[in-house]
Design a protein around this nucleic acid. Structure first.
Lengths: 386, 386, 386
DNA sequence: AACGTTCTAGAATATTCGAAC
DNA sequence: GGTTCGAATATTCTAGAACGT
């Protein structure tokens, strides 16, 4: 009777119970042979079960049946009354078939399952998730460092830009002074040696250099930028000694018409020297916006949003606006009034400016040579004076 | 007997069963009165239960007991043999006490317990977490791309800045040469045509253009920047042929007074032409620091920390320091020594610089016109002087 | 013999067994009271165990003892022989002490592999993971903000750079005009007053300012940058009125030799005025590459890769290349042809350029003073003309 | 919607077996 | 060879779930 196979004891005992003819009054096969019946539950539990198991509880027996996948066969004795309810209990399993004990090994006890695979899956998932979060964290630290590096580099860029801009302003000032000086020089020469034949405020063809004009316009913005960005100082200082650039240029901006108006009064023709460039307003506005970009770094981050918002509302139209003037035309006008060179230029046609400027460069040097060559070759008395 | 309170029927029936003296042979209070006994389970199930419930199964009764929180009292099978193991089943509940039926309402039926989704919740949590980590990873990749883009853009910015700075240096050089040339030109004019009334090295009021002075000072920094950043060359080369800019300017920085000193020796008055700008030291230092910013990109990231640290110790005082001079004053001084223009300027008051510069621009053009118009039209004697 | 506590039945039964005086001949406390003895293993297993457990196997009893952490007390009766080995078995547990049944609840059954803690561990892990993902998300949002800020700042930097570059171009134009004007002025003077002793296109020693030459070359790149970056306009417009800067400079680049060639034809010596700087080609290329850097921001991200790739293939050799010329040499050449100043300079030796330039600055101001001082002190008729 | 009945499952402990040490 | 332990099964108590009232 003893199965030495891998069939659990419960199944072999159950099979024995059902097969055993001596217990047929308590437990036996159904007519179809695909299930078994427990005829007298009470006596079966108390008299038969203890002979095979370590208990006499029908409940424990049923528990085992369920553990091995047996199912109770429900009796739908619909019309039958109470006493019918005490009818035999019937259990069934696909592999518990009369005469086929070889199927018993297919009956598997339910492992205290619920989550053997579920648990394992979770465990694996947990590991994956944990490592995932870990790597994400590491990546984040990496990106954090990179962000900080970029931020510092950007700050350095701002500093560099501010520096360059400052140098630009100073260059502007130098060029301004140069122009002023040349003007004064020429004016002196003119006044001393010549009679004025034509209006002072106009050149031969009335053209003028918008670039030079802009040269003197832009420092205003730069100084504003500098001031706003760096210390937010009020630029209401007066024209006293040691006034800083922002104040200087700002004062320039604050006294816009002063120079021109007296000049106009003194010389009516200068009134005509009005703005020819319509996009100037846009230019000024745009540059102002651009100049709100802080040049120092603490306020940068804080004011970046407003700055950007402003910038976003003011698309990059400065460049196209700024270059709307025609320096070539100006150049041409200058050169055309001149003799040899302008003729050369007129002959050029589609000559590239670069080489044109090369020629200018050469010309300047020629000029130097001409000038320098003179005293040494023809006018030795110059050096004598020196 | 019927409780019309909110106590479930099962509890009232159970209470009745246990209290009823007629059923005491099947079910009764324990001696302590804090539990009840089912003496003959078999008969109790088949004979008593149907009188109170719709079933005759001990299992269903026990299920209800468990549903209301009753617990079975375990009996130790001490010394008792097998058949005696069928001792009475005993159940207990804290609020099912003999003589205290008012406690029954505290006995609550277990609701289909809230815990079917616990495992599912975990499963959902796992899914959520997994998707969360997933999305975080994707976001990180996104930010990674953005970071890389920013980094490259920053590198491009550095290149641009370096380029601009280089152009600035070259402009400086050009302006320098221009100034030098004009000076030479004027000197020649002066020597040829005029008697020297006052020292050559001083202007009428001793003022000078700090901007022009700075114009010639700053290339030092730029060249240093260029050199340090780009190849780290030692800048100790002498003023030989093909010396690069950085060497040139560096030597400027190393022998600061040399040029002036000989000039002083030759002309004592030039001694007064000393630095008026106290913040120059700071300027130089600061610009040097700023110039340590690499202009090529590989070293940028690596040297950014030291750079920043240096920068942090040198707050942005350059701009304010650099602009401490007053170009307007200079301009004024230049113009005041002149006739009409200076008078006009004095009359201006708070005129904006932009328009003022416009007038200068106009003046320059007027000057051109004046100049060009002159030789060709009326006054050939100007050129005679030259 | 009710058992209601949370102490497992085995421990209760074991305690009862050991305490019960009736079973003392089979199982009892040791003399020290910290262990118990099984005197007659055989009879104990077959007679006593079944009364308390569902088996009569000593092995099962021992298994339970081990399950609850009991350990067998080893008797090191080394010299004693076999019969001694059949002596009483002794088991011990730290919390199984005579007279201290309250310690029983500290005895815990070993939970094999089951998953009671596994589930708990999972729960804790879930919490950890959830909070981890949460924090990562928050960090990411933070970094997202920082990235966006950096991006906007970078855009602002590009705008600033573009602005600066534009200003640079304009300055270039101004300087160009200045040079042109001075050249014209000097030429006029020369032609009117002097005899030409030497070719116009060459200075005394054939040297030329590479910086000024570059000054007029570079706007080509800038305009290209501007154009490419900002609107991608084709720069094939002709030299018509209102041509924008980029077109102008671009045309310069397209007709490189045109201006010089006529000059050459007019004056053969100018043929010698060829490029002295060999790295010019590299320079041009490099600047072109650098100028592909977009100045507006939308295309930046998209073109950054190609840009960088180009950049990577063209290392930063521009600066070193650009500065290969010797402005000091140039300066020297200019000054050497001059009288006093050149002598002073020649005396300087290793003087730094900065101070040298300071002296130039002083000289300029001296020149101004000289010029201005004249009319006021000696030549009042100047103002009379005005 | 709460309660009741039934079948099945979960969970903890118990028993057995066998292998590791 | 004995002790401890893992693992499968067994027993018991409790709970879940479906369905009906």
């Amino acid at each position: 009777m003893k199965h030495n196979s891998n069939v659990p004891a419960f199944l072999t005992k159950l099979w024995t119970l059902v097969e055993d003819a001596e217990t047929n009054e308590f437990i036996c096969w159904s007519q179809e042979g695909n299930s078994f019946l427990v005829l007298d539950e009470q006596r079966f539990a108390k008299e038969i079960l203890p002979k095979f198991f370590k208990h006499n509880n029908m409940a424990s027996f049923v528990r085992q049946l369920n553990m091995y996948g047996f199912r109770k066969v429900m009796h739908i004795d619909s019309g039958i009354v109470k006493q019918e309810r005490d009818g035999p209990v019937e259990f069934q399993h696909p592999y518990f078939i009369h005469g086929q004990d070889d199927l018993l090994e297919n009956i598997k006890r339910k492992v205290s399952n619920t989550r053997p695979d579920d648990g394992k899956i979770r465990q694996e998932d947990l590991s994956k998730i944990l490592s995932g979060v870990q790597s994400v964290h590491e990546q984040q630290e990496n990106m954090d460092v990179r962000l900080a590096t970029l931020k510092r580099e950007n700050e350095a860029l701002w500093t560099e830009l501010s520096d360059l801009r400052q140098k630009h302003v100073q260059q502007q000032q130098v060029i301004k002074e140069l122009v002023q000086f040349i003007f004064t020089l020429a004016q002196n020469n003119h006044m001393l040696n010549l009679k004025r034949k034509r209006p002072l405020t106009l050149n031969s063809n009335g053209k003028k250099s918008k670039f030079i004009q802009q040269l003197f316009e832009e420092p205003t913005d730069h100084s504003k930028t500098t001031m706003n960005a760096h210390n937010g100082l009020k630029n209401n200082s007066d024209i006293s000694d040691d006034v800083i650039i922002c104040d200087i240029t700002d004062e320039d901006a604050e006294v816009p018409e002063a120079v021109c108006i007296p000049a106009d009064e003194g010389d009516a023709e200068i009134v005509e020297v009005t703005h020819e460039s319509s996009p100037e307003a846009t230019i000024t506005e745009d540059t102002n916006v651009a100049d709100t970009v802080p040049a120092n770094h603490e306020p940068v981050t804080k004011s970046i949003s407003e700055m950007s918002s402003l910038r976003s509302t003011l698309p990059l139209n400065k460049l196209s606006g700024l270059v709307s003037e025609d320096p070539v035309k100006l150049m041409d006008s200058i050169l055309r009034e001149n003799g040899v060179i302008s003729q050369n230029i007129n002959l050029l046609g589609k000559v590239e400016l670069m080489d044109y400027l090369d020629s200018i460069d050469c010309s300047l040097e020629d000029f130097q040579a001409m000038l320098y060559g003179k005293p040494f070759s023809t006018d030795p008395d110059i050096t004598e004076v020196l």
